[in-house]
């Protein structure tokens, strides 16, 4: 097993990753490195492959060529990664657009399930962590409720706490605010902002350009499955080099 030799070794390394879906070439020669503590925001039109890209990192999508290394564990094409994939999923948290909370479990049970079953923590230990995390995202008084008794914004914050309970080294966010009513977007972004400030490594797919500009260390623009441009937010938003980036931003920033 390879471990990071120093703090600057990338936590994610994608090399020449290609994914096809039937005749559709979804990801084209993706090269991407993410350093520990870095916040990377991926933007692009819907269907450009940005969600697919981050779903490849924790093996929810297979890819056909190239390789992906996450914290020293290597994913191989065609989903044949076995133990490495299991390790990666244990170390990588994910927040989904549709929250995907477990509706049959209470908020607290949602959060403690994986720490107990995967990490083997005692119920008491898992509950202590869960209560701390729920307090942090402002949901502590709702721990006994079921997800459907919460607002969308609250559900997404529980989903964040649930992912954090596994003490991940990397967090993936797949359009975390796209399914939310406008008045609830802020509370979720605030929780993510705080997480970024604490130094969590994050890869975020989002349409929230203001948030991207504020929080990102680097913004990646994906066009038709390719990384068209990547740069610090000031550069991407104020002086994009690529014509495709410019026209995409002109469209989304217009309103």
């Amino acid at each position: 097993m390879t471990q990071n030799e120093n703090a600057t070794a990338p936590i994610v390394r994608m090399e020449q990753v290609n994914k096809h879906f039937g005749s559709l070439h979804v990801l084209k020669d993706i090269d991407l490195e993410v350093a520990p503590g870095e916040v990377v925001v991926i933007i692009g039109a819907s269907g450009s492959g940005k969600s697919t890209l981050i779903r490849c990192i924790n093996g929810l999508e297979e890819f056909q060529e190239g390789h992906i290394e996450v914290d020293g564990n290597e994913l191989t094409p065609h989903g044949k990664s076995g133990q490495a994939l299991q390790k990666i999923r244990t170390e990588v948290g994910m927040v989904f657009q549709q929250f995907n909370l477990f509706p049959h479990l209470s908020v607290l049970d949602n959060v403690i399930l994986a720490p107990m079953k995967v990490r083997g923590w005692s119920r008491a230990d898992a509950m202590e962590t869960a209560e701390r995390l729920l307090a942090r995202v402002g949901i502590s008084d709702q721990a006994a409720k079921h997800p459907n008794q919460l607002s969308g914004g609250q559900q997404q914050r529980v989903a964040l706490a649930r992912a954090l309970a596994m003490e991940p080294r990397l967090m993936l966010f797949d359009e975390p605010t796209s399914a939310l009513d406008p008045e609830m977007i802020g509370e979720v972004l605030d929780a993510m902002r705080e997480l970024a400030r604490e130094g969590m490594t994050m890869i975020i797919v989002t349409h929230e350009m203001g948030f991207a500009r504020e929080v990102a260390d680097r913004v990646i623009y994906i066009h038709q499955g390719e990384i068209a441009e990547q740069a610090p937010p000031e550069q991407i938003f104020d002086r994009p080099c690529d014509e495709r980036t410019r026209s995409f931003l002109a469209r989304v920033l217009k309103h």
Partner: peptide, 13 residues
């Protein structure tokens, strides 16, 4: 929903 399985797997289950 497929998301239930995906969320479970993403947590390491």
């Amino acid at each position: 929903e497929r998301g239930q399985r995906e969320a479970s797997l993403s947590l390491g289950l």
